[in-house]
Design a protein around this nucleic acid. Structure first.
Lengths: 351, 351
DNA sequence: CTGTTAGCGCTTTCAT
DNA sequence: ATGAAAGCGCTAACAG
């Protein structure tokens, strides 16, 4: 293998054929005789020319075989979240066989400018934290598929977060309904929310903190939880909802500790992710609080660890891998439809 | 925002200045008056021209602000492995602030051809499963950093897997040394290996299956385990080593079951990852085998879950995130050195 | 400080 | 079946 750096042009000159012929040998087999084609290909291989430069080809053709996966947050966040990972696995599963590569992109970025000219389009997993990105994406003429949120005129994949949250919250409250009569005033609920607020802080979420209209999944889930609470005719203090800035054991545990140390102590913990539910459960166990007798806990996502945990966490299972596959298929087929995926309640021993 | 598609040229014409001036406005502020520059930038913003097309710029400049992260296997594998995820987090942490984007690339691919012309270089996490890739990477003139394996003339980041495996195995055997005299023939060890063989199968690994010379981390760890075994003067049956094709709970559990159902039943399980150790521990608990009284288990990696598990798994902790950072820094600084990172033994209650 | 121009490496008519 | 030439959108050298 020589060190010489070949280009299509230099190769063509070297072989004594025209540029077009070499290009055709690689890209359009029908444009030249089979014999000639194979001769050229063999010679190229011999010389260490692996084919036309892809960057140049892309500039010319305008296609890249690369799709950007826009993450809600930084890339670091993404890969530590099992749900996000499953999603990504689903996407990769569909795209990889098609020879399409994945470019990970941070939802914190100021704009998609750095990469927009290198990709065929975007799959956005969750509403990007930086809202400027959204404006960008909306204006884009390239294909965009959104997941867990929607954009005007773009394809999307979702589950009904409101309904799912409502369902799992209802489940958390079932035990109580039989003990009391009609209103269930022995229920003390608290909500451990994920990214309800645009802050890095672990803090309580008071109503006046919440934006008027917010369609993020966190707020949809919050609305679902609240609907279940309201239907039971119980009241939840406005100091019983927490914000956790990211899905990590450490943060969740701190919030859980705060929640469990309020008085009266909650006996139902509605958690916006399984990771949070697990952390809360561990905190409860550390404090010798019996689950579910003294404290019921529900999660969201249906990750393996929640199922393996003792007691298994009652949760909403959503098939994230399938979600990823759907998104990727929507992308490949350049479809513009809105897909709504099912979820299901998974009963554990935590309720 | 108009729908017109601007190029540097058309913008320049529209504004009545030359191409170079527009280019300079974006790329070389020192080449024109501040006033003019801001005037141009403002006009561009107004018109919806977001700056020079990056693909064209890259073709011209030969730089991309994209680095390919080559995974050992498919992309799917990567994101389901907590250790790999931490590594990636480390990489992203360093690269993101530099405005460098990550292109994930599968180690299964036949060649790096599809992407080599889009990236500034490669970070390879673990020896790619497809050995053709290695040849490719070796021949590449672009910057390459390898992790957990080495390539001639390329930068690398490693831990001493042999020594680490030896250390943790020694720990697994300590309980026994006191009971017996000098040789410890009451030890029945089994090894649950990860990717020792190039197969999708869960199977035993007989010596004749193993390649003569293999420097993959799995084989280094195997050598470390065996050294510890040999030093104790004990013998491990050649049917007591398993291959697990990927780090998943399901596969590991099957292998663990096979191992625990052999007679005499092993009382020490040397596992090549924490995920495997955890699966083995769960299988043991399901069979009512007491850990560590009847069965000692050691893992490798030091993931959170291994620490939280009851009993906590004795393991080798390696700071994967730091590994990722190191690799990224080596990449950025275009250094060619071989970095060897420390590891440490983390005692749990599983030994 | 500004404008002209030659490529970066390729694909694709269009003519031969 | 093949070759010549235009041009994808940009940057950098150079001249003014």
């Amino acid at each position: 293998m020589t060190d010489r750096k070949w280009t299509l042009k230099s190769i063509a000159a070297h072989l004594g054929v025209s540029n077009a012929t070499v290009s055709n040998a690689f890209n359009r087999p029908d444009q030249l005789s089979k014999a000639k084609r194979e001769e050229i290909l063999a010679a190229c291989h011999e010389l260490g020319y692996f084919g036309p430069n892809k960057a140049a080809r892309s500039l010319r053709k305008g296609t890249f075989n690369i799709v950007a996966l826009v993450l809600p947050d930084s890339v670091e966040y993404m890969v530590s979240d099992p749900v996000a990972s499953s999603f990504m696995r689903g996407v990769a599963k569909v795209l990889e066989p098609q020879g399409i590569n994945l470019l990970l992109f941070s939802g914190n970025a100021e704009s998609v400018n750095d990469i927009v000219d290198f990709v065929d389009g975007f799959i956005c997993y969750g509403r990007p934290r930086n809202t400027k990105l959204i404006t960008h994406l909306e204006a884009l003429s390239k294909h965009v598929v959104t997941v867990d949120f929607e954009l005007d005129n773009k394809a999307s994949v979702n589950i009904n977060n409101h309904e799912a949250a409502y369902t799992v919250a209802k489940q958390a409250f079932t035990g109580f309904e039989t003990t009391s009569d009609n209103t269930s005033d022995n229920i003390e609920a608290a909500i451990l929310g994920l990214r309800l607020l645009d802050t890095e802080l672990i803090c309580r979420v008071y109503d006046h903190h919440l934006p008027e209209l917010n369609t993020s999944i966190a707020h949809q889930r919050l609305a679902g939880f609240r609907q279940a609470i309201n239907e039971l005719g119980i009241v939840i203090g406005d100091d019983k909802t927490w914000n956790i800035p990211e899905s990590s054991e450490r943060y969740a545990r701190i919030a859980a500790k705060e929640a469990l140390n309020t008085s009266p102590r909650p006996n139902v913990l509605l958690c916006m992710s399984d990771l949070i539910a697990l952390a809360a459960a561990r905190e409860a166990q550390a404090q010798d609080i019996k689950i579910p007798e003294e404290l019921k806990i529900v999660g969201f996502d249906g990750i393996d660890e929640a199922e393996l945990f003792q007691p298994a966490i009652t949760t909403i299972h959503q098939n994230s891998e399938n979600k990823g596959q759907q998104a990727a298929e929507l992308f490949i087929n350049k479809e513009k439809q809105q897909v709504m995926l099912p979820f299901n309640l998974k009963l554990g021993q935590s309720t």
